[in-house]
Protein backbone atom coordinates (compact mmCIF):
# COMPACT_ATOMS: atom_id res chain seq x y z
CA UNK A 1 0.00 0.00 0.00
CA UNK A 2 1.41 3.37 -0.95
CA UNK A 3 1.24 6.62 0.94
CA UNK A 4 -1.58 7.68 -1.28
CA UNK A 5 -3.97 5.63 0.78
CA UNK A 6 -2.76 7.23 3.98
CA UNK A 7 -3.33 10.74 2.78
CA UNK A 8 -6.50 9.62 1.11
CA UNK A 9 -8.40 9.91 4.34
CA UNK A 10 -7.26 13.43 4.97
CA UNK A 11 -7.99 14.46 1.39
CA UNK A 12 -11.43 13.10 1.64
CA UNK A 13 -12.05 14.93 4.86
CA UNK A 14 -10.91 18.11 3.24
CA UNK A 15 -13.18 17.41 0.30
CA UNK A 16 -16.22 16.87 2.45
CA UNK A 17 -15.43 20.02 4.38
CA UNK A 18 -15.34 21.88 1.08
CA UNK A 19 -18.62 20.34 0.12
CA UNK A 20 -20.20 21.28 3.38
CA UNK A 21 -18.93 24.81 2.97
CA UNK A 22 -20.33 24.97 -0.56
CA UNK A 23 -23.55 23.47 0.66
CA UNK A 24 -23.89 26.02 3.40
CA UNK A 25 -23.08 28.95 1.11
CA UNK A 26 -25.59 27.74 -1.44
CA UNK A 27 -28.21 27.43 1.23
CA UNK A 28 -27.49 30.92 2.49
CA UNK A 29 -27.85 32.35 -0.99
CA UNK A 30 -31.18 30.60 -1.50
CA UNK A 31 -32.33 31.75 1.91
CA UNK A 32 -31.34 35.27 0.87
CA UNK A 33 -33.47 35.05 -2.24
CA UNK A 34 -36.39 33.76 -0.22
CA UNK A 35 -36.12 36.56 2.29
CA UNK A 36 -35.75 39.07 -0.54
CA UNK A 37 -39.02 37.98 -2.10
CA UNK A 38 -40.74 38.25 1.26
CA UNK A 39 -39.28 41.70 1.89
CA UNK A 40 -40.50 42.97 -1.47
CA UNK A 41 -43.97 41.63 -0.86
CA UNK A 42 -44.16 43.19 2.61
CA UNK A 43 -42.68 46.47 1.40
CA UNK A 44 -45.18 46.78 -1.45
CA UNK A 45 -48.06 45.86 0.82
CA UNK A 46 -46.96 48.23 3.58
CA UNK A 47 -46.35 51.27 1.37
CA UNK A 48 -49.67 50.72 -0.39
CA UNK A 49 -51.43 50.45 2.92
CA UNK A 50 -49.77 53.55 4.38
CA UNK A 51 -50.69 55.61 1.34
CA UNK A 52 -54.21 54.22 1.33
CA UNK A 53 -54.75 54.84 5.02
CA UNK A 54 -56.18 58.38 4.67
CA UNK A 55 -58.90 57.09 2.36
CA UNK A 56 -59.63 54.10 4.62
CA UNK A 57 -59.97 56.46 7.58
CA UNK A 58 -62.12 58.86 5.58
CA UNK A 59 -64.56 56.24 4.30
CA UNK A 60 -64.47 53.74 7.15
CA UNK A 61 -65.92 50.26 6.45
CA UNK A 62 -67.94 51.92 3.70
CA UNK A 63 -64.83 51.71 1.56
CA UNK A 64 -65.33 47.97 1.26
CA UNK A 65 -69.14 47.87 1.44
CA UNK A 66 -70.12 51.05 -0.40
CA UNK A 67 -71.59 50.85 -3.87
CA UNK A 68 -71.02 54.47 -4.84
CA UNK A 69 -67.78 55.85 -6.21
CA UNK A 70 -68.01 59.60 -6.56
CA UNK A 71 -64.69 61.41 -6.20
CA UNK A 72 -66.27 64.87 -6.67
CA UNK A 73 -68.19 64.33 -3.43
CA UNK A 74 -65.36 62.34 -1.85
CA UNK A 75 -67.47 59.18 -1.65
CA UNK A 76 -65.45 56.03 -2.17
CA UNK A 77 -67.08 52.60 -2.20
CA UNK A 78 -65.24 49.69 -3.83
CA UNK A 79 -68.10 47.24 -4.39
CA UNK A 80 -68.62 48.03 -8.11
CA UNK A 81 -65.01 47.23 -8.86
CA UNK A 82 -64.76 44.19 -6.62
CA UNK A 83 -67.86 42.90 -8.42
CA UNK A 84 -66.46 43.82 -11.83
CA UNK A 85 -63.18 42.07 -11.10
CA UNK A 86 -64.75 38.92 -9.72
CA UNK A 87 -67.41 38.69 -12.45
CA UNK A 88 -65.03 39.18 -15.38
CA UNK A 89 -62.56 36.70 -13.91
CA UNK A 90 -65.35 34.21 -13.25
CA UNK A 91 -66.65 34.54 -16.80
CA UNK A 92 -63.12 34.21 -18.16
CA UNK A 93 -62.38 31.05 -16.18
CA UNK A 94 -65.80 29.54 -16.79
CA UNK A 95 -65.03 29.70 -20.49
CA UNK A 96 -61.29 28.99 -20.36
CA UNK A 97 -61.32 25.96 -18.04
CA UNK A 98 -63.51 23.59 -20.07
CA UNK A 99 -62.22 24.80 -23.43
CA UNK A 100 -58.60 24.79 -22.26
CA UNK A 101 -58.68 21.34 -20.68
CA UNK A 102 -60.61 19.95 -23.62
CA UNK A 103 -58.13 21.37 -26.12
CA UNK A 104 -55.17 20.13 -24.07
CA UNK A 105 -56.59 16.61 -23.86
CA UNK A 106 -57.25 16.67 -27.58
CA UNK A 107 -53.67 17.74 -28.29
CA UNK A 108 -52.15 15.20 -25.91
CA UNK A 109 -54.39 12.18 -26.46
CA UNK A 110 -56.28 12.37 -29.73
CA UNK A 111 -54.55 14.57 -32.29
CA UNK A 112 -52.02 12.96 -34.62
CA UNK A 113 -48.50 13.92 -33.59
CA UNK A 114 -47.92 16.38 -36.42
CA UNK A 115 -51.16 18.28 -35.86
CA UNK A 116 -50.63 18.43 -32.13
CA UNK A 117 -47.11 19.77 -32.62
CA UNK A 118 -48.27 22.56 -34.93
CA UNK A 119 -51.29 23.49 -32.83
CA UNK A 120 -49.18 23.37 -29.68
CA UNK A 121 -46.77 25.88 -31.11
CA UNK A 122 -49.66 28.14 -32.04
CA UNK A 123 -50.99 27.98 -28.49
CA UNK A 124 -47.60 28.97 -27.10
CA UNK A 125 -47.50 31.87 -29.54
CA UNK A 126 -50.88 33.06 -28.25
CA UNK A 127 -49.40 33.26 -24.77
CA UNK A 128 -46.79 35.71 -26.02
CA UNK A 129 -49.25 38.22 -27.52
CA UNK A 130 -49.12 41.47 -25.48
CA UNK A 131 -52.31 42.31 -23.65
CA UNK A 132 -52.69 45.66 -25.40
CA UNK A 133 -53.10 43.76 -28.66
CA UNK A 134 -55.87 41.64 -27.16
CA UNK A 135 -57.45 44.84 -25.89
CA UNK A 136 -57.37 46.54 -29.27
CA UNK A 137 -58.64 43.46 -31.01
CA UNK A 138 -61.42 43.11 -28.46
CA UNK A 139 -62.43 46.71 -28.85
CA UNK A 140 -62.23 47.01 -32.63
CA UNK A 141 -63.18 43.54 -33.81
CA UNK A 142 -64.99 41.56 -31.10
CA UNK A 143 -66.91 44.54 -29.65
CA UNK A 144 -69.02 45.23 -32.77
CA UNK A 145 -69.61 41.50 -33.25
CA UNK A 146 -70.83 41.22 -29.68
CA UNK A 147 -73.05 44.25 -30.02
CA UNK A 148 -74.64 43.30 -33.32
CA UNK A 149 -74.62 39.53 -33.40
CA UNK A 150 -73.99 37.81 -30.09
CA UNK A 151 -75.55 39.90 -27.35
CA UNK A 152 -78.95 40.35 -29.09
CA UNK A 153 -79.20 36.55 -29.15
CA UNK A 154 -78.48 36.20 -25.43
CA UNK A 155 -81.54 38.01 -24.13
CA UNK A 156 -83.15 34.71 -23.06
CA UNK A 157 -80.39 34.30 -20.42
CA UNK A 158 -81.49 35.29 -16.90
CA UNK A 159 -78.87 38.02 -16.37
CA UNK A 160 -78.31 39.30 -19.88
CA UNK A 161 -80.86 42.08 -20.18
CA UNK A 162 -80.05 45.61 -21.31
CA UNK A 163 -78.97 47.32 -24.49
CA UNK A 164 -76.20 45.53 -26.39
CA UNK A 165 -73.00 47.61 -26.36
CA UNK A 166 -69.61 47.11 -27.96
CA UNK A 167 -68.20 46.92 -24.41
CA UNK A 168 -69.15 45.22 -21.14
CA UNK A 169 -68.64 42.43 -18.61
CA UNK A 170 -69.18 39.57 -21.03
CA UNK A 171 -66.77 40.93 -23.62
CA UNK A 172 -64.13 41.55 -20.95
CA UNK A 173 -64.65 38.02 -19.65
CA UNK A 174 -64.26 36.58 -23.14
CA UNK A 175 -61.06 38.55 -23.70
CA UNK A 176 -59.73 37.29 -20.36
CA UNK A 177 -60.63 33.75 -21.38
CA UNK A 178 -58.65 34.13 -24.59
CA UNK A 179 -55.72 35.45 -22.60
CA UNK A 180 -55.59 32.73 -19.92
CA UNK A 181 -56.43 29.93 -22.36
CA UNK A 182 -52.87 29.41 -23.64
CA UNK A 183 -51.50 28.94 -20.14
CA UNK A 184 -54.15 26.40 -19.24
CA UNK A 185 -53.76 24.53 -22.53
CA UNK A 186 -49.97 24.43 -22.49
CA UNK A 187 -49.65 23.38 -18.85
CA UNK A 188 -52.43 20.80 -19.04
CA UNK A 189 -51.04 19.33 -22.27
CA UNK A 190 -47.54 19.02 -20.79
CA UNK A 191 -48.96 17.40 -17.66
CA UNK A 192 -50.94 14.93 -19.73
CA UNK A 193 -47.91 14.09 -21.84
CA UNK A 194 -45.98 13.34 -18.66
CA UNK A 195 -48.46 10.70 -17.47
CA UNK A 196 -46.50 7.45 -17.76
CA UNK A 197 -47.43 4.79 -20.29
CA UNK A 198 -47.86 2.25 -17.48
CA UNK A 199 -50.82 4.22 -16.10
CA UNK A 200 -52.44 4.43 -19.50
CA UNK A 201 -51.88 0.76 -20.23
CA UNK A 202 -53.44 -0.19 -16.92
CA UNK A 203 -56.73 1.05 -18.40
CA UNK A 204 -56.18 -0.21 -21.93
CA UNK A 205 -55.16 -3.62 -20.57
CA UNK A 206 -58.51 -3.94 -18.80
CA UNK A 207 -60.49 -3.23 -21.95
CA UNK A 208 -60.90 0.50 -21.42
CA UNK A 209 -61.55 2.88 -24.30
CA UNK A 210 -59.41 5.94 -24.96
CA UNK A 211 -61.92 8.21 -23.28
CA UNK A 212 -62.06 5.90 -20.26
CA UNK A 213 -58.28 5.95 -20.20
CA UNK A 214 -58.32 9.76 -20.15
CA UNK A 215 -60.86 9.80 -17.34
CA UNK A 216 -59.28 7.08 -15.24
CA UNK A 217 -55.56 7.46 -15.79
CA UNK A 218 -54.86 10.96 -17.11
CA UNK A 219 -57.31 13.35 -15.44
CA UNK A 220 -56.82 12.09 -11.87
CA UNK A 221 -53.07 12.18 -12.30
CA UNK A 222 -52.96 15.75 -13.54
CA UNK A 223 -55.76 17.38 -11.59
CA UNK A 224 -53.61 19.09 -8.96
CA UNK A 225 -51.34 20.47 -11.66
CA UNK A 226 -54.35 21.67 -13.64
CA UNK A 227 -55.69 23.48 -10.60
CA UNK A 228 -52.29 25.14 -10.37
CA UNK A 229 -52.52 26.23 -14.00
CA UNK A 230 -56.01 27.59 -13.43
CA UNK A 231 -54.77 29.55 -10.42
CA UNK A 232 -52.01 31.03 -12.57
CA UNK A 233 -54.64 32.01 -15.12
CA UNK A 234 -56.87 33.43 -12.39
CA UNK A 235 -53.98 35.53 -11.11
CA UNK A 236 -53.57 36.97 -14.56
CA UNK A 237 -57.31 37.54 -14.98
CA UNK A 238 -57.73 39.31 -11.64
CA UNK A 239 -54.94 41.76 -12.30
CA UNK A 240 -55.23 42.17 -16.07
CA UNK A 241 -55.44 45.89 -16.75
CA UNK A 242 -54.72 46.93 -20.29
CA UNK A 243 -56.94 44.57 -22.25
CA UNK A 244 -59.83 44.93 -19.82
CA UNK A 245 -59.64 48.71 -19.82
CA UNK A 246 -60.33 48.66 -23.57
CA UNK A 247 -63.48 46.59 -23.42
CA UNK A 248 -65.02 46.83 -19.94
CA UNK A 249 -66.95 50.07 -20.57
CA UNK A 250 -65.43 51.99 -17.66
CA UNK A 251 -68.69 52.54 -15.80
CA UNK A 252 -68.38 52.99 -12.04
CA UNK A 253 -71.51 51.11 -11.04
CA UNK A 254 -72.30 47.62 -9.82
CA UNK A 255 -73.14 45.76 -13.04
CA UNK A 256 -76.75 44.62 -13.14
CA UNK A 257 -76.41 42.44 -16.21
CA UNK A 258 -73.98 40.10 -17.90
CA UNK A 259 -73.62 42.49 -20.80
CA UNK A 260 -73.61 45.76 -18.84
CA UNK A 261 -70.59 48.02 -18.93
CA UNK A 262 -68.59 47.89 -15.72
CA UNK A 263 -65.20 48.56 -14.18
CA UNK A 264 -62.63 46.29 -12.60
CA UNK A 265 -60.26 47.26 -9.81
CA UNK A 266 -57.29 47.27 -12.13
CA UNK A 267 -59.03 49.18 -14.93
CA UNK A 268 -60.31 51.75 -12.44
CA UNK A 269 -56.79 52.48 -11.24
CA UNK A 270 -55.50 52.74 -14.78
CA UNK A 271 -58.35 55.04 -15.80
CA UNK A 272 -58.37 57.45 -12.88
CA UNK A 273 -54.87 57.60 -11.47
CA UNK A 274 -53.56 60.31 -13.80
CA UNK A 275 -56.39 62.70 -12.92
CA UNK A 276 -56.82 61.87 -9.25
CA UNK A 277 -56.86 65.42 -7.93
CA UNK A 278 -59.96 65.34 -5.69
CA UNK A 279 -59.45 64.97 -1.93
CA UNK A 280 -58.55 61.37 -0.98
CA UNK A 281 -58.93 60.25 -4.60
CA UNK A 282 -55.35 59.06 -5.13
CA UNK A 283 -55.35 57.52 -1.67
CA UNK A 284 -58.62 55.73 -2.45
CA UNK A 285 -57.15 54.29 -5.64
CA UNK A 286 -54.25 52.91 -3.62
CA UNK A 287 -56.87 51.50 -1.27
CA UNK A 288 -58.33 49.69 -4.27
CA UNK A 289 -54.86 48.34 -4.98
CA UNK A 290 -54.65 47.05 -1.39
CA UNK A 291 -58.02 45.32 -1.82
CA UNK A 292 -56.86 43.78 -5.10
CA UNK A 293 -53.76 42.46 -3.36
CA UNK A 294 -55.88 41.04 -0.53
CA UNK A 295 -58.28 39.39 -2.98
CA UNK A 296 -55.37 37.88 -4.91
CA UNK A 297 -53.92 36.47 -1.69
CA UNK A 298 -57.30 35.07 -0.59
CA UNK A 299 -57.93 33.51 -3.99
CA UNK A 300 -54.49 31.94 -3.96
CA UNK A 301 -55.01 30.57 -0.47
CA UNK A 302 -58.39 29.12 -1.48
CA UNK A 303 -56.82 27.55 -4.55
CA UNK A 304 -54.08 26.04 -2.45
CA UNK A 305 -56.71 24.64 -0.12
CA UNK A 306 -58.46 23.18 -3.14
CA UNK A 307 -55.24 21.61 -4.42
CA UNK A 308 -54.58 20.20 -1.00
CA UNK A 309 -58.02 18.68 -0.57
CA UNK A 310 -58.05 17.34 -4.13
CA UNK A 311 -54.67 15.66 -3.77
CA UNK A 312 -55.62 14.23 -0.39
CA UNK A 313 -58.86 12.52 -1.12
CA UNK A 314 -59.09 9.08 -2.58
CA UNK A 315 -61.98 9.24 -4.95
CA UNK A 316 -64.05 6.97 -7.06
CA UNK A 317 -63.31 8.22 -10.55
CA UNK A 318 -64.01 5.19 -12.67
Amino acid sequence: MSAGYVTGGRDRRRLTRHLRLGDRAYRRVLQGFGVFVLVIFVAVGATLFIQAWPAFKHSGPGFVTGTTWDPSHAIYGAVPFIAGTLFTSAIGLALAIPIGIGAAIFLAEYAPRRISGALGMLVELLAAVPSVVYGLWGFLVLGPIFQNTIEPRLSWLPFAHGAPLPVGLLLAGVILAVMVLPTIVAVTRDLANAVPATSREAVFGLGGTRWQMVRTAVLPAIRTGVVGAVVLGLGRALGETMAVTFVIGNTNAVPNSLIAPAQTMASLIANEFTEATEPFHASALLGIAVLLLVIAVIVNALARLLVWSVSREVRETV
Binding site: S199, E201, G205, L206, G207, T216, P220, A221, V314, R315
Partner: peptide
Protein backbone atom coordinates in the same frame (compact mmCIF):
# COMPACT_ATOMS: atom_id res chain seq x y z
CA UNK B 1 -61.27 -3.24 -26.14
CA UNK B 2 -63.26 -6.48 -26.15
CA UNK B 3 -60.11 -8.44 -26.84
CA UNK B 4 -58.34 -6.74 -23.97
CA UNK B 5 -61.18 -7.53 -21.63
CA UNK B 6 -60.81 -11.22 -22.55
CA UNK B 7 -57.01 -11.22 -22.50
CA UNK B 8 -55.87 -9.53 -19.29
CA UNK B 9 -52.43 -8.11 -18.70
CA UNK B 10 -50.10 -7.63 -15.74
CA UNK B 11 -47.15 -5.32 -16.24
CA UNK B 12 -43.52 -5.25 -15.18
CA UNK B 13 -44.05 -2.56 -12.57
CA UNK B 14 -47.12 -2.73 -10.35
CA UNK B 15 -49.43 -0.04 -11.73
CA UNK B 16 -52.51 0.24 -9.52
CA UNK B 17 -54.54 3.40 -10.04
CA UNK B 18 -52.89 5.68 -7.50
CA UNK B 19 -55.95 7.75 -6.72
CA UNK B 20 -58.25 4.78 -6.20
CA UNK B 21 -58.85 2.62 -3.16
Amino acid sequence: TEIRARIGMVFQRPNPFPTLS
